[in-house]
Write a protein that binds this DNA or RNA. Structure first.
Lengths: 348, 348
DNA sequence: TACTTCGTCTTGAACGTTCAAACCCATGGA
DNA sequence: TCCATGGGTTTGAACGTTCAAGACGAAGTA
């Protein structure tokens, strides 16, 4: 608290000018090696740290990356953002940035928050999560030329290539899960998903359907769609199992639905199945590897959130530090698609 | 992006000086009503927003509150911090602050991060979570006179009154849970906790023991201590139930242990109990009301995290905005103790 | 010799805000 | 008439940094 070391203090002690100290820190190549070393020594000695506010005044760069922390959410999948957030904070720190949080109840109020933040704190960029069809947030940021990366593909066709994004390949994930079940001897493998129309949900369903078809099993009639709640998952699972007695395994679009499916699979009402094929209980695989999955022994697909977060920071930093402007990079934005991995537990 | 409205722009359009605009925004009482109104109109019209960096340069206030986001942790209880974080972001925004995230692997590196942050971003204050005996972080901040609030009581005796804190009354929570079980007809109620020495754990055990004693039941021998993992909870529950066949209910220090207890309570090995008192299955109550509790139907104690977060912001803002210095407030710091509430589900 | 170039370093100005002090004018009392 | 008071406003300076321009000496070139 007591000491507030400025660049002028360093300059005085090192016997050089302010600008030379600044150069040592920002453009070391223009200063003589001997001087550079002397200045660096003094910097260490006095514990000098560049004042971001002052630097921001001059350069317009705040070294802040803003991200929204969602209100409540469904809870069960909430931990995904939590882990992503930690990864982001970590990766950002390594690149000299810090994470600034904000909340918003919907897209409209989020855009209003953009204006607020840009006017006051001037974050250098944004990370958007949970992007969807015709996302007004992305368009607004694109329009203003504010750098940003999304965690999640832009599912809308035309916008697909207008900004950098990072995503996890859901289709590859459900394919791995399905193959795992096939290898374990299951044939008629069902899918519990969300109603068609959500990019993420459709993508995950596609991986299951493709793999099943490749194995010579017709996926028709083996899929159910429902909203993302445990009870809904249980009902849908029961419905699917009842309608097709051959079903011995379920791939689910989320851990919420998978937990519901587990309830259904273990419920007394299905005891008769023990007689039919007692050696093969109904297997269930979830998606996201949430703490709930860990707690109940649910096999699930784990997203590489740490890597995803690191990629977001990398892509954003490239825009911010490269010579390219946000608009230029929008011409040919970079994409990163990561593969989820299957965490095998008791349920499959 | 295009426009960058400064205080000078507003002044020019409104036909006043910079300082008058500044006064309208910061000390409206010194400016004539008519002028005030005119300036405010122009502010709205131009969409002026005060530049935090420039203000910070002059006033030294960054309007930032820093908080650590923990690395992963046990996962099952991680959602607590997540919800707290959201509440904090929300409450902070309402008071004109924003939340800045940082990570640290241990207390030592966290203190190093303090120095980094204070030197560069100069957050106005910190919120510390997971405080413990002789916490070096609290001492460091106290020493430097940096304003902070802890979420969690300072359990160490002497330091108890040296900084403001917010906490949830764990003892009151387990008392409510125990009373709930007593009312439901249970008599011999067990407790699954952590090893003695953790303030939080001891506090929660105390509420159970007190309530049981008040009801005329001697708690001796009805308690087990173990580390916070599902498997440990299961083992401890089994041990307790085996050693005392009269036990029909368990209060647990965490949802992790409670989920383990549920496994034990429902395991086939205990089927004989059905004969003894089939009308009364073993009831289990957890702590923290995590998503896992919701998913498996576990009755649990819910912490008022939103209120806790809001209280943290209020206490911090009081230090930051009040006339009192951090050191002065350390003389008689404010405390807030909130009551958890019981969320009843199938398990009890 | 004079002119240019280059490497290294320094100086003044500026970013947008608020503080401290000064200014102006109307009012009222001596 | 003069001065003190005070509400409302303006002016200059400063916060700590980096940009743009310039200064200076050494070395190379005409």
């Amino acid at each position: 608290m007591a000491d507030k070391v400025t660049i002028a203090d360093v300059a005085r002690v090192a016997g050089v000018s302010r600008q030379t100290v600044s150069n040592v820190l920002n453009t070391p190549e223009v200063v003589r090696e001997e001087t550079r070393q002397r200045v660096l020594d003094v910097v260490g000695e006095l514990g000098y740290r560049v004042n971001r506010a002052a630097r921001q005044m001059r350069t317009g760069r705040s070294q802040l990356i803003a991200i929204r922390i969602d209100p409540d959410r469904d809870g069960i999948n909430g931990s995904v953002l939590d882990r992503f957030l930690h990864g982001l904070t970590d990766a950002a720190a390594r690149s000299g940035y810090r994470i600034l949080l904000y909340t918003a109840d919907d897209d409209r109020s989020e855009v209003a928050t953009f204006e607020d933040l840009l006017g006051a704190y001037e974050p250098d960029g944004f990370v958007l999560t949970g992007t969807h069809h015709r996302d007004p947030r992305a368009s607004w940021l694109l329009d203003k030329g504010v750098p940003f990366v999304t965690f999640g593909r832009p599912w809308g066709e035309e916008a697909a290539a207008r900004h950098p994004w990072v995503d996890v390949d859901g289709s590859a994930g459900t394919a791995v899960a399905t193959r795992h079940l096939l290898d374990a001897g299951h044939a008629r493998i069902g899918f519990l998903g969300w109603p068609a129309g959500s990019g993420v949900g459709d993508d995950r369903r596609e991986g299951w359907a493709r793999t099943l078809a490749e194995a010579g099993v017709d996926p028709t009639g083996l899929s159910r769609a429902t909203s993302d709640a445990v009870a809904d998952g249980e009902a849908a699972a029961r419905d699917l199992i009842d309608s097709d007695p051959g079903v011995t395994a379920l791939v689910c679009v989320s851990d919420s639905l998978a937990v519901g499916a587990l309830h259904a699979a273990r419920s007394p009402g299905l005891a008769w199945r023990e007689d039919t094929r007692p050696e093969l209980p109904i297997a269930v695989i979830g998606f996201d590897d949430t703490p709930v999955a860990r707690a109940v022994g649910l096999t699930s697909l784990s997203q590489p959130l740490k890597e995803a977060a690191a990629s977001c920071v990398t892509l954003l930093a490239r825009i911010l530090e490269g010579t390219e402007t946000a608009r230029a990079s929008a011409a040919s934005p970079a994409h990163v698609l990561l593969e989820p991995s299957l965490v095998v537990r008791q349920s499959a």
